[in-house]
Write a protein that binds this DNA or RNA. Structure first.
Length: 239
DNA sequence: CCCTGATTCGC
DNA sequence: GCGAATCAGG
């Protein structure tokens, strides 16, 4: 399988949407989890809560853990980056743990400030949605009450030209995605009816208000996965 | 054990 | 560029 535009887009969206590499690999098909991760990194996507962050390595159990593989190949375990400049932010040192207080990091302040691009809607409510905590990816986490109407609805925009085909007249395809429409996927990528929500986004977020409520839930501990409700993409494909 | 993402390195 | 092998943590 090759990385077509569609597959890359699906990978990016699912990755940003919080799906695991395994889920993405399964969804795409024909690729392994490692391929997804490798591609994601090559695309420049990375971070996201990863179990491995520590730069510290202990060589105590390395040899022991490698019993499965016959020691037939030399193991270059060195990363001699003596003078590695490391220009950009290489590692986010500490991932912001869910903070109960509105204390927001730089990303939060940035988001809050970037919220009013469509601030023509002055309803007297000049405040941005109350920040309850900061999510794993630096997302603002809002209280349940605030999720329904965090942003005052903006005045209606200009009408967009009609779609060429009535088949997809009301569907938002991959090519229709932009910064203003909800990117929440509906259905499965690759299938004819796969499309995106297309609702007007909650400003500052890639999804509409409703799907923000689905996308930005408190990340549960690894032990308890979310089986029932919030599975995006219509859940795992049943073949 | 299982899972996760990160990294390396031969291709 | 790709991804299996490997590493490392939960």
């Amino acid at each position: 399988m090759s990385w077509t535009e569609e597959r890359i887009e699906t990978l990016r969206k699912m990755w940003e949407g919080g799906s695991t590499a395994s889920q993405i690999a399964e969804e795409l098909g024909g690729v392994s989890r490692n391929a997804v991760i490798g591609k994601a990194h090559r695309l420049g996507l990375k971070s996201r809560p990863s179990p491995v962050k520590s730069g510290e390595k202990k060589d105590t159990k390395k040899a022991a853990a490698k019993t499965a593989k016959p020691a037939e190949k030399p193991k270059p375990k060195e990363k001699p980056q003596a003078s590695a400049p490391a220009p950009a932010a290489p590692k986010t040192a500490a991932r912001p743990a869910p903070a109960p207080a509105p204390k927001a990091g730089p990303s939060a302040a940035e988001l809050a400030k970037a919220t009013p691009p469509a601030a023509e809607a002055d309803k007297g409510e000049k405040d941005v949605p109350k920040i309850v905590s900061v999510g794993p990816g630096g997302f603002l986490r809002q209280g349940p009450g605030d999720q329904q109407a965090p942003i005052p609805p903006a005045p209606p925009r200009r009408l967009v030209p009609a779609k060429p085909s009535p088949e997809i007249a009301d569907k938002t395809s991959l090519l229709d995605l932009n910064d203003r429409v909800c990117r929440w996927p509906m259905g499965h990528p690759g299938e004819p009816d796969f499309h995106f929500c297309g609702e007007k986004v909650n400003p500052g977020f890639p999804y509409c208000v409703e799907h923000c409520g689905r996308a930005y839930q408190a990340q549960l501990p690894r032990g308890s996965r979310r089986p029932p409700p919030p599975l995006p993409f219509g859940g795992p494909r049943v073949r």
